[in-house]
Design a protein around this nucleic acid. Structure first.
Length: 430
RNA sequence: GGAGAGAUGGCUGAGUGGUCGAAAGCGGCACCCUGCUAAGGUGUUAUACGGGUAACUGUAUCGAGGGUUCGAAUCCCUCUCUCUCCGCCA
């Protein structure tokens, strides 16, 4: 949520900024809502004030044993018009807040202008990009490889659940589990995150806090027989909401939480896209990194956060590139987003495997997360950031495709072998 | 799922219809004092939204929402959450 005061003050600048995000901010509507609300507040409060004064006087008179019928009937009259005013006020407050909740975050000055992913800016390629490997022999899709090994089955999964679900068997299931463990272990041990085990079901308030609601309800799975339960689309939601309504001490910042969790997305509107394999599932595992930081250091924190995600790709020796998303591709809540994209040989392209964003005070304003600033002695909004470190299913897919040998076996990246009983290859399941 | 108890400021905890944004203690902050020194004293200490250059001022907030009343932390209703006991259960 944007600060309504700043929005009003810099409205023309903000309209321009959000224009680049392909959001049209209705300036007149906002100014109207704002002044309308203020007028009603003023009227309501002056009535309320009158009422308070009179009521006190009645109390005073009665304590002296005197009658106060005149005053009582006067207050009754005030109450009548107050009731109408309060109804108007409620309506106007709700409209005002709804408006604000639907306005996206403003873009960081470093975000390049652009409309679609074509305008995203490539920042760098991974060091050990193995071109020989990239151009190698076999371009089988990971799902084909998995099926050939008899360790992957989407047909049976769709009987059990429906489309966009998978079954993994044997050493492929083990590799999947190893990946999750390796990632979270690395962040805990090397990057000093605190591991958190989170609820996979959250209420709508939490989703409003992080920005999935009210605008993106269609992307979520809602639980039908229970009021106000949603499956999390990412652990970002519970992790960031840990801080909701808290005032943190400046000394505690930054707070770094990491969680390996299952995520659920309805993938509405992506019919026909990535229908094969593990790339776009209704259910997938992901390690999520969330930082709560001092506003002064959020830019630096984003770079560090990205390096944490990159570290995983480096350790796995997967080829990737780092992308700065253009204005049109940057998400609703984000001010600036970098993606990491892993090389997928079968698609001859890079695919998103991590998305790291600085939300600045957009989420903390929605969630009311503050810290006590030692210098100003005021409570101020913190900055929140998050990133995937990494999406486990997509990483598994990338490993299958990038580490496939000519004979069809999959070589297990060295760093994962301790998690796999020192197994070196995944061979076909007989 | 059944039975009961509860939810008050950063924390503990008083407060059952008016002068209560709320006693007291702890904690925090500021200043002062000092041969009782891991001490003492004094003051101060919430948030949001209005109005005002400002000093300041108005309104709201005692889990949430509704109701009774001229007036609600206090009475009534609904909901949420927490705790205790019973049942069930990974």
């Amino acid at each position: 949520m944007l600060d309504p005061k700043i929005l009003k003050k810099d409205i023309d600048l903000i309209v321009k900024n959000l224009d680049k995000k392909k959001f049209h901010l209705d300036k007149d509507l906002f100014l109207n809502l704002d002044s309308n609300r203020k007028d009603i507040i003023a009227e309501t409060e002056s009535l309320q004030s009158k009422k308070n004064i009179l009521s006190k006087e009645i109390g005073f008179l009665k304590s002296k044993g005197e009658g106060a019928e005149n005053l009582t009937s006067e207050v009754e009259l005030i109450n009548l018009s107050l009731k109408d005013k309060k109804e108007l006020l409620d309506i106007s407050e709700v409209k005002f807040r709804d408006f604000l909740l639907n306005v996206p975050n403003i873009l960081d000055k470093n975000v390049p202008s652009g409309n679609s992913e074509k305008d995203n800016k490539i920042i760098k390629f991974s060091k050990d990009k193995d071109l020989e490997k990239l151009n190698k022999v076999n371009f089988s899709d990971h799902s084909e490889i998995g099926k050939a090994l008899k360790l992957y089955d989407s047909d049976t999964a769709s009987n059990i659940s429906g489309s966009r679900f998978s079954l993994l068997f044997g050493s492929l299931a083990q590799l999947h589990r190893a990946l999750g463990s390796f990632m979270i272990d690395t962040h805990i041990n090397e990057h000093k995150y605190t591991e958190v085990n989170v609820p996979l079901i959250v209420n709508s308030k939490s989703l409003v806090g992080t920005g999935q609601l009210p605008k993106f309800k269609d992307d979520l799975f809602e639980i039908k027989n229970k009021d106000d339960f949603f499956l999390i689309p990412t652990a970002e939601v519970p992790l960031t909401n840990i801080f909701k309504d808290k005032v943190l001490s400046e000394d505690d910042l930054p707070i770094m939480y990491a969680s390996l969790s299952t995520c659920f997305r309805s993938e509405a509107g992506s019919y026909g896209k990535d229908t094969k394999g593990l790339i776009r599932q209704h259910q997938f595992d992901k390690v999520e990194l969330v930082n709560a930081v001092n506003p002064d250091s959020s830019e630096e924190s984003l770079n560090t956060l990205i390096s944490h995600a990159e570290k995983i790709l480096d350790l796995l020796c997967l080829p990737y590139r780092k992308i700065l998303l253009c204005s049109g591709d940057t998400g609703f809540s984000s001010s600036i987003t970098y993606d990491l994209e892993v090389w997928m040989p079968s698609q001859n392209s890079y695919r998103e495997i991590s998305s790291c964003s600085n939300f600045k005070d957009f989420q903390s304003r929605r969630m009311n997360i503050k810290y006590k600033n030692k210098l100003t002695k005021k409570k101020e909004y913190i900055h929140t950031l998050n990133g995937s470190g990494l999406a486990v299913g997509r990483t598994l897919a990338a490993i299958i495709e990038n580490f496939q040998n000519d004979n069809g076996d999959i070589e297990i990246p060295e760093i994962l072998r301790p998690y796999m009983n020192n197994m070196k290859f995944i061979k076909s399941h007989k």
